[in-house]
Design a protein around this nucleic acid. Structure first.
Lengths: 195, 195
DNA sequence: TAGCCATCTTAACCAACGTCAATGAAAGCC
DNA sequence: GGCTTTCATTGACGTTGGTTAAGATGGCTA
């Protein structure tokens, strides 16, 4: 029995598709391309050209960054989230690695598909752009939190907003997401239990 | 004598206007709106609707975030940089404060002006969008550095890429940008001198 | 000039994280 | 079953940043 993530999770927004009619949504469904990826598969690696972008329909994707042979987890993406800001196209290169933590069902979009979708649903383009700007600002916010909160506060925040992550990914990767070592997360948890 | 910032500064990109013709650039100049702001003036405050966005032509703007009555500096914007990701419009609210560190000359764009500019220079829209996506990815990168580097490394990086900042803003704000207290920055500098 | 204010530095002490190493627990494999 | 591998925990110890408080410096103003 898994605790669902809070609707106030940092990445949850008003569903951008609400603005579409029933019919438009149905059409969108016929257009979208779904792909399965096995646990451990990479969606992209740092430095590669980004020709597609991905939304998680089912499963969990982790992005991370390498520095001195050490992994630094940037984010976890689960059901309904788009991996990275949805950015792809010529001259765009992946700034990080993205790997499936579980078997995943992904909604994949490339440049051509995007053009087709926007041609069929012109209103969607503006919606997506606004969505992207919102996400960008939320990212700013996240950076702010990252900077001003202690590891303990960040842990509490993650636990409150995305509890299900703790059942889906190993703790040492959560530690890396919080910006601390696994040993420190262990002690932090112990400290919190005692008080 | 001020040391110019490195061309490899985190926010420097290929000039998006290179792709325009001489003529188009000239037209752009006639369209843009410049405003002067005095040192200490705010461009926006957290929570306010963002109806304009700003590019720094001359001067320096600092964005920061409030948390428990304490300021956390998010970034410094100087000549040629756009304050925040260039985002404005209905339903967009400022996630932070933006204040002029010096008397500034700013390039101001609102929704209406943006429409006019894009109507005159249709190619610019795609260029700006691509630029925005690049910036978004660079932001991801920055978050990665923020997470994986020690304060000392971040200090060295800032000193290497944006040395002029150290002559333009007080050190306690740089400390706040690096995510440490002014006293710690003092000690850190002393440590580095001795080694 | 004296006084005030903002900024930077230094010192002492404490708390928290990193490192290294060892131990346990759980899962997967032969 | 026994083995290995992976992951979480614990302890000892060093380093570093936060806190508090005290000066030092320089600029500005009454």
């Amino acid at each position: 029995m898994s605790i669902p993530d809070s609707p106030h999770a940092p990445r949850s927004l008003t569903d951008p598709l609400q603005a579409l009619t029933e019919q438009e949504r149905a059409e969108l469904l016929t257009l979208q391309r779904l792909e399965r990826r096995a646990k451990g598969e990479y969606l992209f690696r740092a430095g590669q050209p980004l020709e597609r972008y991905y939304a998680v329909v089912e499963g969990c994707v982790r992005t991370y960054h390498l520095h001195d042979d050490e992994e630094f987890t940037l984010d976890f993406y689960t059901e309904g989230q788009t991996v990275l800001p949805a950015v792809a196209g010529k001259g765009i290169f992946a700034p990080s690695f993205a790997v499936c933590m579980e078997d995943c069902l992904l909604n994949v979009t490339d440049e051509q598909l995007e053009r087709e979708v926007f041609a069929r649903l012109p209103r969607l383009k503006d919606i997506c752009q606004q969505q992207s700007e919102q996400l960008q600002l939320m990212h700013q916010q996240e950076l702010a939190v990252q900077k001003s909160a202690s590891p303990e506060q960040r842990y509490a925040h993650l636990l409150a907003t995305r509890p299900s992550l703790f059942e889906r990914v190993p703790q040492y990767q959560i530690a890396s997401y919080l910006g601390i070592k696994p040993e420190s997360l262990s002690r932090l948890r112990k400290r919190l239990q005692q008080n």
